[in-house]
């Protein structure tokens, strides 16, 4: 039983590594976040199998927390970065940055008429983390 569980854990780990190739390849932000969610789901499965294998009940609590955190990561990504309607509005300083010499910054110049640009996975505004110029 334990040997079989070890082999199954190894298979899960290989599947996780294969799936994480999507983080590397690509092409959009959402694909990478989906790979992060794969990390969450497969991690939960590995943790509950590990809890059975090594008789460590605390690992089930870890699995519960990991499931919750994987959900929160995807929610935060969609709500604050990726969704053009729900994204955090740019502050006044970031809005006025286009008229103060930062025209060459990609995304700041074309922010008005861009709309939902097809296939472009960049955030619509340059509201990245730590964007505090102005």
């Amino acid at each position: 039983m334990t040997t079989a569980l070890d082999l199954l854990l190894l298979a899960l780990l290989l599947s996780l590594i294969v799936g994480l190739g999507r983080v590397w390849r690509g092409p959009g932000f959402a694909d990478r976040m989906l790979a992060a969610q794969l990390l969450g789901t497969t991690g939960v499965a590995m943790l509950i199998v590990l809890a059975e294998r090594f008789a460590q009940p605390a690992l089930r609590d870890v699995a519960l927390v990991l499931a919750l955190l994987a959900l929160l990561a995807v929610l935060a990504f969609v709500a604050r970065v990726w969704d053009p309607d729900d994204a955090v509005e740019p502050t006044a300083s970031a809005d006025g940055a286009g008229s103060t010499g930062l025209v060459g910054e990609p995304g700041a110049a074309a922010s008005g008429s861009d709309g939902p640009s097809s296939g472009d996975h960049r955030p619509r505004q340059s509201n990245g983390v730590g964007d505090d110029h102005g």
Partner: peptide, 14 residues
Amino acid sequence: AGYLVARAARRRGV
């Protein structure tokens, strides 16, 4: 998460 990512992708015009 799947619903939200798909809705955001549709809104972005993917």
